[in-house]
């Protein structure tokens, strides 16, 4: 079974959609980068100045335990309804 040729107007539309998609991608990238700099940046800077280590990456070699008490949600229905 042979393939139907794609009409010219369809090819033009497909080309245009590809260009728009590329624009959309770049636009999203730019907006997200600005958000990253303006929202994440200042908080990160405060963390650096306060020498915070939220991921506990600095104390590698230690003699104590690396276990933490489990921070599990209690098993009741109200708690189960929450996404936190």
């Amino acid at each position: 079974m042979g393939m139907e040729p794609v009409p010219v107007h369809r090819r033009l539309l497909n080309g245009w959609m590809a260009i728009v998609a590329r624009f959309g991608f770049v636009q999203t990238l730019v907006i997200l980068s600005i958000f990253y700099a303006l929202l994440i940046g200042p908080v990160a800077l405060v963390g650096v100045l306060a020498r915070r280590d939220p991921l506990d990456k600095r104390t590698l070699r230690g003699s104590g335990t690396a276990w933490s008490k489990a921070d599990s949600a209690s098993a009741d229905l109200d708690r189960a309804k929450q996404m936190t």
Partner: peptide, 25 residues
């Protein structure tokens, strides 16, 4: 729990700024 996971992801971005930009976007 999606919100707790999202909190972990944001915390990770704070802690790894500015290297986490590609992952963030």
């Amino acid at each position: 729990k999606p919100f707790i996971k999202f909190e972990r992801i944001l915390t990770t971005y704070f802690a790894t700024f500015p290297r986490s930009l590609p992952s963030f976007t």
